[in-house]
Lab assay of single mutants.
Amino acid sequence: MAAGGDHGSPDSYRSPLASRYASPEMCFVFSDRYKFRTWRQLWLWLAEAEQTLGLPITDEQIQEMKSNLENIDFKMAAEEEKRLRHDVMAHVHTFGHCCPKAAGIIHLGATSCYVGDNTDLIILRNALDLLLPKLARVISRLADFAKERASLPTLGFTHFQPAQLTTVGKRCCLWIQDLCMDLQNLKRVRDDLRFRGVKGTTGTQASFLQLFEGDDHKVEQLDKMVTEKAGFKRAFIITGQTYTRKVDIEVLSVLASLGASVHKICTDIRLLANLKEMEEPFEKQQIGSSAMPYKRNPMRSERCCSLARHLMTLVMDPLQTASVQWFERTLDDSANRRICLAEAFLTADTILNTLQNISEGLVVYPKVIERRIRQELPFMATENIIMAMVKAGGSRQDCHEKIRVLSQQAASVVKQEGGDNDLIERIQVDAYFSPIHSQLDHLLDPSSFTGRASQQVQRFLEEEVYPLLKPYESVMKVKAELCL
């Protein structure tokens, strides 16, 4: 049975990233139509530049190519590739079939990587351009969430054990800070992308030097003109047959890092959902379990974690691919890159769409948070109580021993009897502590235990987050809708 299948058929496997999760716009960027249309555009740009620099290419040939950029006979191309065992030459023939007058000058002087690699770089750039505003929107939604809850005390956790208090907004800023680093890295790697350009079979530009009869300047002009037509500021000066596969490492490393950030955020949300302090959106008709109707599973956060793990592992592909590119190139890269580049971007696209949807509907339960604080705060307040007693004339050592005994009794009630923490009640009825009984409410005010959390939130948002989001103001209103 021949390899390949009808990918629109229910009898043929289709990647869930495309069929179930990723956005239509990201799927289109990695589609065959987008790819092969870009090949034709690159052939047109090459012909236009070659004509401008004096090669015998007519206006009629150029116009014929322009008129057929979208006229792609995919069936013919597939048949040609089956016959020739070469995808680029299959599309040269297919393009030439609908451009008979231009057929002889299509791909003039070029090698397969002229269309293959340059198209990949265009796709990487455009895919990054799709991700950047999506990530900015996630940051914006979380920034709104953090600002609104900047002063809401909550129990902090280290080692997932109760620690000092923080605020809900401050905790959210930990998430935002990681995503801001990801946004900066995505922008950097996007701006650092260079075009492969017009380089020939081993990167020496020998074929173009021959076409222009040894004119170095025209060869350099050709490279520059096509690079500018493709919208790049610069091209690699040095290439082998391909652009260095280190570029793929750079791009997928940034995406993998984004995956790590999203995994951490969504894990926190899942843990908070278990504590009943916070939940992701839950639709009115949504079913959490087929057997347990009360369940409210954090399905979206779980999906993000599941896909983020996949995204983090994909960076190993370009690392290994770059390491086995012998001399000017081997074909070890080809099949692998067809999979890992598309999957990385479709996965990143999915987790950003999902995280935006989550961040637009996060639900906080202040009463649950308050109750958990009441359970733990008495123990945390013991040092403040000791200091207040010393100020009232008591002995630190005597007070410490009193607190120690009462704390152990209260802990026994919590752990052995399943009761509430009654340390404060014990202190309130103990005559030894009568000098500070009137101060206990103040000493137990949760806001006095959150330090500068709310001020940190305000400063972080104003100095770091809002300036970073400013270039994306025009796209901030787009909502994230999930079908599944």
Rank of each mutant, 00 (worst) to 15 (best):
A3H: 14
G5T: 07
D6W: 07
D6L: 13
H7F: 15
S15I: 12
P16V: 06
A18T: 14
S23M: 12
P24C: 00
E25L: 08
F28V: 10
F30N: 06
S31P: 06
R33E: 06
Y34P: 15
K35P: 10
L42P: 02
W43T: 09
L46H: 06
A47V: 08
A47G: 07
E50G: 05
Q51W: 09
T52H: 10
G54K: 12
I62M: 12
Q63W: 02
E64F: 01
E64R: 03
M65A: 01
M65V: 13
N68L: 03
N71V: 02
N71H: 04
F74Y: 07
F74V: 09
K75Q: 00
M76G: 06
M76H: 06
A77D: 08
A77R: 04
E80P: 09
K82W: 10
L84R: 11
R85C: 02
R85L: 02
D87S: 00
V88N: 01
H91S: 06
H91A: 02
T94P: 13
F95P: 03
H97C: 00
P100N: 11
P100I: 12
A103N: 04
I105F: 13
I105C: 00
L108I: 10
G109S: 06
A110D: 02
T111D: 00
T111I: 14
T111S: 01
S112C: 01
C113P: 03
C113I: 02
Y114F: 06
V115D: 03
G116K: 05
T119K: 05
I122T: 13
I122E: 00
I123D: 13
I123F: 11
A127Y: 14
D129R: 03
L130Q: 05
L132F: 09
P133G: 02
L135R: 10
V138N: 07
L142S: 01
D144M: 07
F145L: 13
K147V: 04
E148Q: 06
A150M: 00
P153K: 10
L155M: 05
H159D: 00
Q161D: 01
P162C: 03
G169R: 09
K170E: 04
R171M: 04
C173N: 08
L174R: 10
I176T: 06
D178Y: 14
D182R: 05
L183Q: 02
N185M: 10
N185K: 09
L186M: 14
K187Y: 14
R188P: 00
D191I: 12
D191F: 07
D191C: 09
D192T: 13
F195S: 09
T201F: 05
G203T: 03
G203N: 05
T204I: 06
Q205I: 03
F208A: 08
F208Q: 01
F212S: 03
E213N: 07
G214V: 05
D215V: 09
D216T: 11
H217I: 14
H217K: 14
E220D: 01
Q221G: 13
V226N: 01
E228K: 15
A230G: 05
A230C: 12
A230R: 05
R234M: 15
F236K: 08
F236V: 10
I238Q: 10
Q241H: 00
Y243R: 10
T244N: 01
K246E: 09
V247F: 09
D248Q: 11
E250W: 15
E250K: 14
L252G: 08
V254C: 14
S257G: 05
S257D: 02
L258C: 09
C266S: 14
T267K: 02
I269K: 15
R270N: 08
R270V: 09
A273E: 06
L275H: 15
L275W: 05
K276R: 03
K276N: 04
E277L: 06
G288A: 05
S289Y: 02
S290Y: 08
S290H: 08
K295C: 01
R296L: 11
R296V: 10
N297D: 10
P298C: 13
R300G: 15
C305R: 10
S306Q: 03
R309W: 08
M312R: 09
V315Y: 01
M316P: 03
Q320M: 15
A322R: 10
A322M: 12
V324F: 08
W326D: 09
W326R: 06
F327P: 02
E328C: 00
T330A: 12
L331F: 14
D333G: 14
S334I: 00
S334F: 03
N336S: 06
E343R: 10
E343I: 01
T347Q: 00
A348N: 13
D349V: 04
T350A: 07
T350F: 02
I351M: 04
L352I: 13
L352C: 07
N353M: 14
Q356D: 09
N357G: 12
N357T: 02
V364F: 00
P366G: 13
V368Y: 11
I369Q: 02
E370M: 09
E370Y: 02
R372Q: 03
R374E: 04
R374L: 11
Q375R: 10
E376W: 12
L377M: 12
M380E: 10
M380I: 15
A381C: 03
T382K: 06
E383R: 10
I385Q: 14
I385F: 09
I386W: 14
M387A: 10
M389R: 00
K391N: 07
K391G: 06
S395Y: 10
R396M: 10
R396L: 02
R396W: 02
H400N: 09
K402R: 13
R404S: 05
R404Q: 10
R404L: 08
L406P: 00
Q408F: 01
A411E: 08
A411C: 05
A411Y: 12
S412Q: 14
V413H: 11
E417V: 14
G418S: 14
N421F: 03
D422P: 01
L423K: 11
L423A: 14
E425T: 13
D430P: 09
D430T: 15
Y432H: 09
F433W: 06
P435N: 04
S438L: 00
Q439H: 14
Q439A: 12
L440V: 14
H442V: 12
H442R: 02
L444P: 04
S447T: 07
S447L: 10
F449T: 06
F449W: 09
F449D: 14
T450W: 15
T450Y: 01
G451T: 01
G451C: 13
A453S: 12
V457S: 04
Q458C: 09
R459I: 13
R459K: 01
R459G: 10
F460R: 03
F460V: 13
L461A: 00
L461V: 13
L461F: 03
E463Q: 12
P467S: 10
P467K: 01
P467Q: 00
P467M: 04
L468G: 13
L469T: 12
L469Y: 06
K470F: 15
K470R: 10
P471Y: 04
Y472I: 15
S474D: 09
S474E: 01
V475K: 08
A480R: 15
E481A: 15
L484Q: 15
